[in-house]
Write a protein that binds this DNA or RNA. Structure first.
Lengths: 217, 217, 217, 217
DNA sequence: AATGAATGAGGTTTCATTCAT
DNA sequence: GATGAATGAAACCTCATTCAT
């Protein structure tokens, strides 16, 4: 009576786990935490509800797992990128590029799931806060390499940059501008500032895919 | 049969409406859209559920009303501020100040309710999108007065600034820094840029509470 | 599509409450706490599940309400009976009679619901324990009027009597013996003891429905 | 692939069976039939769920096995005790002692599992009923040796005694009174009766650990 | 104008039980 | 012999929403 042939049983735990995370992330991103039911997730995975519970314990559990996965992923992605150079400015540029690149691929989820507006239980709020904190800290360290400023300033700046990048990414998502261009825009704005813009100057990376320097517009 | 005297009946419609919106906004901000029940709102208002329906028709209805109220409020607040000067730079500074001032007072709600992360029904998503669009458009116009740049650039820049401001505000909320200082920080970063920071220069408003000029840090 | 004409809507709260308690008690007694669902109770009352929750808050809530009702009922019943005489022996007899009379009418529920074997949450266990404690205390006080014994002895005796009465009642339920006879049996056993039984003596109340004295069997 | 050495495989069937019964009984007694899951039992035994099914077929099956084991155990225990004497009174006393001794060791389980309050499926109810019937029958036979009374009376008396003993045992569990003392209390009450108590007489076993006679208090 | 009573629908979660390995 | 993977069923509970008063 069941559509046999479509149902994959006996899938190893590790595989199922990743499948479920992917499905859950997409669902949460599309419709929001509360609008997604465990039933939904199960059906989209082609399994039954109790399986979801067996793997993640609770709805909060699977959401937390999504967050943690994204956190590690984004963090690693940026870290790997900045590790490819030792020149501070270049590292900043590479990190920016990696960030926008990651958002380019995982972006919808990112914005929606981990944006500041999501209000849920304490555990989730804490996890999101940690994710955002990690990001800001990473930026702060990169900035510290290039920019001399008192500590408080750098921290504030880092948070502003993260917000700017997120917002820019949100505006940009769905457009056909290439990643490089949006990243350069972001760097230009941040590095050169509005004042300079009003004078016609702007920032641009050097040739190749990594070196940065100030240039005449 | 009930001990009257505690129950406020016959409150004029306009007053009730505002009370309910305030209560609803606070509740939504604290616990999130789905975690707030119509019962909650009714009880906190000291009225019965059917009254809430009589005034707003549905849960979505009351949420939309909250958004609309906030949109008008923030928008008017900034508009009023920039209207007090005719010098472009000053207008930008006044607008920034007004924005952070507003967030200072309505901020919790703002960040949580209208942030990018809230996913709900289509009508709500559209309203939030409109709110954010209005904001960005406002900034864009202000920028256009001070900064010469191709259109696409200005729009992108406006979105980046809004995001930066939101994020900075979120980081700042709860600290004891005065509004003016955080607003100046924001302007300094945006106007002068990181490049200048690395050279020790920074932005500062002129004397009084409105004029801006470049200054030695 | 619904069988109209059968559904009673708008029933006053107090009435519904009692109906629900009666239905719940019967259901719990017949099938046990866990085997009864809130759905069951609702359906048997001809109402919907949320109503049950509106009135009692939770399944534990309605169970506790059943216990409390029974406790008060039995306690009052016995108290009223013993209050009708001032002679100790007679009071003991009247109380016994009242107890068996109550069990005669509410017995099934009593045995099943409040018997020692029911294991549930702490709140319920506590309520049942209180019920049983009250009973024993009542008996103890009655005994103290007729019997001289050190405190510990009386307490132990009271518990033994309660158990004996319960067990006897359980054995008796469903038979066609009249209440009076089983009550007399119980008194005879308790008062005269097995030793006397072996000698052919036995206890009996005096004539009428209340006075007690020792008599030849 | 698993680190063997911790897992006990190949345990003989009979041993496993007893282990499982012990674990199950304890679990049922502590938390009640429905609150115990097959998972619980399996985990506490260090085996997997399907093993439990292999041994007992179903949850009801394992519960029934618990009951049967307890029934046999208690019955045998009392039988063995009364078999050590041929004098009726002494046999009664020995049986009482054995009963309280057994409850002393298995009591928690006994009271909770096989008390009159446990309502479950029909098969279980029948098994419990049989257990209780056996007990009463045993007592009845003992009584018949010492006490002359019409049949109905003896049966009723037996049930009353069982209930009294159970209730007394429940009250006594956890106290530090020795088994002998509580058993003597019980016998005193049953044998001498309240009437005698009010005159200061009481029952006591003869010297040694078995002979009984009436004595001055 | 205002509310107590009522409900359909749906959410998360747990469990006894079975296969396929 | 033993188990991890899997599920159908059902439980408790809450909510947005509507009538009848």
């Amino acid at each position: 009576m069941r559509h046999s042939g479509e149902v994959r049983t006996r899938v190893p735990r590790a595989v199922r786990e990743q499948e479920m995370l992917a499905v859950a992330e997409a669902a949460f991103a599309q419709r929001g935490y509360d609008a997604v039911s465990m039933q939904d997730i199960a059906v989209r995975c082609g399994i039954s509800k109790p399986m979801v519970y067996a793997y993640f314990g609770s709805k909060e559990g699977i959401y937390l797992a999504c967050i943690e996965r994204a956190r590690r992923d984004l963090y690693d992605s940026v870290l790997r990128a900045v590790g490819q150079s030792k020149k501070p400015d270049e590292r900043l540029w590479l990190g920016t590029l990696a960030f926008f690149g990651w958002v380019d691929q995982n972006g919808e989820s990112y914005r929606v799931l981990y944006g500041p507006g999501s209000v849920h239980g304490e555990a989730i709020a804490a996890a999101i806060s940690r994710l955002r904190g990690d990001q800001a800290k990473l930026i702060e360290q990169l900035l510290a390499e290039s920019v001399a400023a008192p500590d408080g300033d750098l921290e504030a700046t880092a948070h502003a940059l993260v917000g700017a990048a997120e917002s820019l990414a949100a505006w940009w998502v769905g457009s056909d501008e290439p990643v490089e261009r949006i990243a350069r825009r972001f760097m230009s704005l941040c590095w050169t500032g509005l004042g300079a813009m009003s004078e016609g100057r702007s920032w641009a990376p050097a040739s190749g895919d990594g070196r940065s320097r100030a240039a005449r517009g």
